[in-house]
Amino acid sequence: MNRPLNICLIDDDDIHLYTLKRALNEIELPKIVTTFSDGEEAINYIQDNIDNNDSLPDIILLDINMPIMDGFDFIETYLKLHIDKKISIYMLSSSVNPNDIKRAKEISIISDYIIKPIKDETLEQILHSKH
């Protein structure tokens, strides 16, 4: 795969997006990072690019607590889009609420639930698994 990895970050916390982007930059792989500050913005983007597999993300790092459309609402809407491309979705949240964790584990398309802050090694593993 020579095409750069398409990584999509969905989080309303600017600081977290900033640190995440910095951490991603440290990983030496060709990649494109797109950020959205809530689920609805991301859904709009995916809908606009639904026929263009290359523009669709390979990896989504999804926060739970966001305005307008939160992480779980995003997943619900995302499932309705019936996207062919195999996109790995990771839930990335500072919530240690067992309900959130259980709910995330019950959704099969969520690859993993990661509690913030994500470790650099974990981030690297995620990227390499897709490359």
Partner: peptide, 22 residues
Amino acid sequence: FADITSHNLRAPVSNLNSLLHI
């Protein structure tokens, strides 16, 4: 309340850690 402590405190603290690391 558990959610507040979980999210509202953990999130900024985790951010601080990341920022400090950078």
